[in-house]
């Protein structure tokens, strides 16, 4: 990958833009963790992600850049903003944002950054790759995903399906077979065993709105 290395000075236009974008990304990242206004932090995150996307664009990875904008700026930050909106109604300057662990957190962050920067500098200090337009275009990436990486790609779709099923299992509260006795509103037998051996076939649906009493005599919450 190493080819003829050009001189560092004068810098090319790409290098200057890349450097500026890096400064913007770093500065806004610092502001994300230091600002005292939650909404501002989320918005600074937009700037940070945007600058990163610009960096990708300069490196000719245009598809990754747009994915960064769509997913991180478009989806994740919006999700964050909605989260803030729904949980903290009065927004503005808030005092209690500083964590008690900030010294530890800062140490860990600086340490991680130091290790990573060292590794990358040591590994790639002398490497040079000429930028070719279109190297990271959607066409190239698509061809490579659906040719070389087709099996991992399909496995990923299986993973997403499994995650979906799991999310439904963990969150859906109305999964229960309808109890005909409960449906009719009639009192169940007082000594219903904890596991009825043979649950009766459910009628069409609407089992979530069962009213009546369960075996233990407790009035069900969403029905009563």
């Amino acid at each position: 990958m190493t080819s003829q290395v050009p001189d560092l000075w004068p810098p090319s236009a790409q290098e200057v833009v890349f450097l500026l974008l890096g400064v913007v990304a770093l500065g806004s990242a610092l502001l994300v963790v230091t600002t005292r206004q939650l909404v501002h932090a989320a918005l600074w995150l937009v700037v940070c992600f945007g600058a990163l996307a610009g960096g990708y664009l300069v490196l000719t990875a245009e598809f990754v850049a747009w994915v960064q904008v769509l997913i991180y700026v478009g989806a994740i930050v919006v999700l964050l903003l909605f989260g803030i909106m729904l949980t903290r109604a009065p927004i503005g300057r808030s005092a209690g944002l500083d964590s008690g662990n900030r010294v530890t957190a800062a140490t860990v962050a600086v340490g991680t950054a130091a290790v990573l920067v060292t590794v990358v500098v040591q590994g790639f200090a002398t490497a040079y790759t000429p930028l070719e337009p279109g190297g990271g275009a959607a066409a190239t990436l698509g061809a490579s995903i659906f040719r070389s990486w087709v099996l991992p790609f399909e496995a990923l779709s299986v993973l997403l399906l499994a995650a979906l099923i799991g999310a439904i299992v963990l969150s859906r509260t109305d999964i229960r077979p309808a109890n005909p006795a409960a449906d009719a509103g009639g009192p169940a037998a007082p000594t219903t065993p904890p596991h009825p051996p043979d649950p009766a076939p459910p009628p069409a649906d609407g089992s979530g709105a069962t009213a009546g009493e369960t075996g233990s005599g407790r009035v069900s919450r969403d029905g009563g």
């Binding site: 299992v169 963990l170 509260t173 999964i175 229960r176 904890p194 649950p199 407790r218």
Partner: peptide, 29 residues
């Protein structure tokens, strides 16, 4: 568990138990 989303020890969990609910999603998972 009869109903994974129910809070442990809550009335909902009790009711899911008495109604004999099951998580058959276990098999595809």
């Amino acid at each position: 568990v009869a109903s994974a989303a129910a809070v442990p020890g809550s009335a909902e969990e009790e009711r899911a138990l008495t109604e004999g609910a099951t998580h058959t999603e276990v098999y595809p998972l």
